[in-house]
Design a protein around this nucleic acid. Structure first.
Lengths: 111, 111
DNA sequence: ATTTAATATCGTAGATATACGATTGAATAT
DNA sequence: ATATTCAATCGTATATCTACGATATTAAAT
């Protein structure tokens, strides 16, 4: 066969997509913005700030945690959530060049 | 009731999430990278480059188009896809400050 | 007019995502 | 010891996503 069918997606593409997906819900955007806004981690009152049930917020927190974007530490009866430095660095390192790349490409306005 | 339950998510949060979601799949990341990479629009051969069936690629293209990230022009029997400048600008305008915001926040390492 | 080629759309199966209330578990407070 | 409180998990209903093959559509080529 002359034409080789494409290889699978590479690691960066998969990780980028995973991070994007984790951020692909307004509640999860709101959560990370909240965490960035408050100087200290906030425990629990995230639920108060969102128009969603406690169990739903907990699910969204879990999604962000699984993606490595936030981390949570048990602190007595509460749990203290904050941004995960490493995950944020990954976001920066993967998103920034991609966005630059896309922007540069559109400046050549091909169509 | 003393505590006001949060308002709904704002426009930026919803749009950011929508864009992130549209980019939340390796195939769609691969597609926009392809479109950015080629100097001119590419017509058709996207399917050749991905490990997916033609109908599946078509679905992914539609998702990107619906989100306003790419556009497609019919060109004879082919369709010419390219990045949508406006959508890319939105990505830049929404993602960049968010990523900066998150990065700055982690530098204060609260946890 | 027919055939060919490129894409989109349809139909569909299976997997994930989203939301909620109810329940559980764990830690402090009484 | 018991009650209270915070947060995770369970169970569940509904919706959306992802993938494919089959079919339809469209325009060029014969």
């Amino acid at each position: 066969m002359a034409i080789t069918k494409a290889k699978l997606f590479d690691t960066d593409q998969k990780r980028t997509a995973e991070l994007m997906k984790a951020l692909g819900h307004p509640a999860r955007i709101a959560i990370i913005e909240l965490l960035a806004e408050r100087e200290t981690c906030i425990c629990g009152d995230i639920t108060e700030e969102l128009p969603l049930a406690q169990s739903t917020v907990s699910q969204h927190l879990k999604a962000l945690k699984t993606a490595g974007i936030i981390k949570g530490e048990i602190n007595g009866v509460r749990v203290c959530y904050c941004l995960d430095e490493e995950g944020i660095k990954e976001i920066k390192d993967l998103f920034s060049p991609l966005v630059e790349n896309l922007t540069t490409a559109t400046e050549k306005d091909c169509c």
